[in-house]
Computed example of a mutant assay.
Amino acid sequence: MSRKFDHLGDVETFITVVEKGSMTMAAIALATTPSVLSRAITRLEARLGVQLLRRTTRRLSLTEQGRLYLEQSRAAFALIEDAERAIQGPGDELRGSVRLSAPTTYAHHRLPALMQRFCAQHPQVRIELNITNRNVDLVAEGYDLAIRMGNLPDSGLVARKLEDAAMCLIAAPGYLARAGAPQGIADLGRHSCLPFVMPSTGRVSPWILREDGRDVDWVPHGGLQVSDDVLGVVTLAQNGLGICQTYDFIAQDLIGQGRAVEMLKQARGRSRPFSVIYAPHRRLSSASRALIDSLIESTSK
Rank of each mutant, 00 (worst) to 15 (best):
K4L: 15
F5W: 13
L8R: 07
L8N: 03
V11K: 03
V17F: 02
E19Y: 02
G21N: 06
M25N: 14
A29N: 07
A29W: 02
T32I: 05
T33C: 09
R39E: 00
I41D: 00
G49C: 10
G49R: 07
R54G: 08
R54K: 14
T56S: 11
R58A: 15
S61I: 05
S61A: 13
L62N: 06
L62V: 06
T63E: 06
E64M: 10
Q65R: 13
Y69H: 08
L70G: 01
L70S: 04
I80W: 12
E81W: 08
E81P: 04
E81V: 07
E84R: 13
A86R: 15
Q88D: 11
G89I: 03
G91A: 14
E93L: 09
G96T: 06
S97T: 10
S97I: 06
R99Y: 05
R99P: 03
H108V: 13
H108S: 12
P112Q: 07
A113Q: 09
L114D: 01
M115E: 00
F118K: 03
P123N: 08
P123T: 06
I127T: 08
N133P: 03
N135I: 15
D137C: 11
L138N: 00
L138P: 00
Y143R: 03
M149P: 04
G150K: 02
A166Y: 02
M167C: 15
C168P: 04
L176N: 04
R178W: 00
P182K: 01
I185G: 01
A186F: 00
L188A: 06
G189F: 09
C193A: 12
F196P: 01
F196N: 01
F196K: 01
V197G: 10
V197I: 15
T201N: 10
L209W: 02
L209V: 06
R210A: 11
E211H: 12
R214A: 14
R214K: 13
R214N: 10
R214L: 15
R214T: 09
G223I: 04
S227P: 11
S227G: 15
S227W: 14
D228C: 12
V230R: 04
G240P: 05
G240K: 02
G240D: 01
I243P: 00
I243G: 00
I250S: 01
A251W: 00
A251L: 03
Q252S: 14
Q252C: 14
R259K: 14
R259V: 14
E262T: 09
R268L: 08
G269A: 05
R272E: 11
V276Q: 00
I277W: 02
Y278S: 12
S288P: 06
A290I: 01
I292M: 07
S294V: 04
L295Q: 00
I296F: 07
S298M: 11
S300I: 05
